[in-house]
């Protein structure tokens, strides 16, 4: 059941959330098809329980943990975030989850840990889209450790007060609201801390169009379309896109001294 109104948190936007119907029927999740409507139609084959997440690599306490146990370690928090897709549309989504930083601290990164690599489930039976070589499966993503430790970086298990629907990345997905949506890897089965920058699916598919950082940046266009503006789902007119998707105050410091045109 939907939750009662709560006070606005420090990371929440007060913008109107996108209708639940739109946020759960207009998705990019190529494991279930290439059209935006495909995931909602096809993702019923995914079984989000039982689910195991492996946390390993450069950590003192590597582990393999059941999803329910993992979730029980952290109190659920509500976060209303803007979501900006690299395709120049955007939504406002009320997520439920816990900060990624909490999980990372719990497993104690070693001094060698510099990056965090994420992997989606690989199972063509549950994810029929993986039968086609559309992308190099399984989907992988990554963050620099300091990005991953930022309080905005969320591991989500729900939205709109409900359990995360399969098409939105059940049972566990990443949400990094200052980056393009494709960084928000879905249906995570593995989180590895690494010394070197991990590969990421879309930059492997097309290095010229999708970078490792993928920070929302109105000044760096996608080669095929402008990133200067976006269409908020449900609105008619485009609106200007904000640097770091409006989270510049919180995250710009992570990139001081970096050329963001080079590191797009």
């Amino acid at each position: 059941a939907p939750k009662k109104a709560r006070p606005r948190g420090p990371y929440d936007t007060d913008e109107t959330p996108t209708p639940y119907e739109d946020a759960t029927t207009y998705n990019n999740f190529y494991e279930f098809g290439l059209d935006k409507g495909d995931p909602a139609e096809n993702a019923h084959t995914l079984k989000p329980r039982p689910w195991t997440v492996v946390i390993d690599g450069e950590v003192n306490k590597p582990q393999r943990v059941d999803m329910d146990t993992l979730q029980s370690w952290f109190p659920l928090e509500d976060r209303v975030y803007r979501m900006r897709c690299v395709e120049a549309w955007s939504m406002v989504i009320p997520w439920m989850g816990f900060p990624l930083a909490g999980l990372l601290r719990r497993v104690e990164p070693t001094s060698k840990a510099k990056y965090v690599a994420f992997t989606t489930l690989m199972d063509p039976k549950q994810m029929p889209g993986q039968k086609a070589a559309t992308l190099d499966w399984p989907y992988v993503e990554g963050l620099r450790l300091d990005e991953a430790l930022h309080p905005l970086a969320l591991l989500a298990v729900g939205l709109y007060g409900k359990v995360l629907p399969n098409q939105n990345g059940a049972p566990l997905r990443l949400v990094v609201p200052w980056k393009y949506g494709f960084k928000g890897i879905k249906s995570i089965v593995r989180i590895s801390l690494t010394e070197t920058q991990p590969p990421t699916t879309w930059s492997l598919a097309n290095r010229r169009e999708y970078g490792f950082y993928a920070n929302v940046n109105p000044q760096v266009d996608h080669p095929r379309w402008s990133q200067a503006s976006e269409r908020r789902i449900g609105e008619f007119r485009r609106r200007p896109t904000l640097p770091f998707n409006g989270y510049a105050e919180q995250v710009a410091g992570l990139y001081s001294g970096m050329d963001l045109r080079e590191n797009f």
Binding site: T18, E21, D22, T25, Y26, K36, G37, W89, R231, I233, G234, F236
Partner: peptide
């Protein structure tokens, strides 16, 4: 379009 039956992003 008039019925709002073109999904979340009707212009697209």
């Amino acid at each position: 379009f008039a019925r709002g039956a073109l999904g979340a992003n009707p212009i697209e």
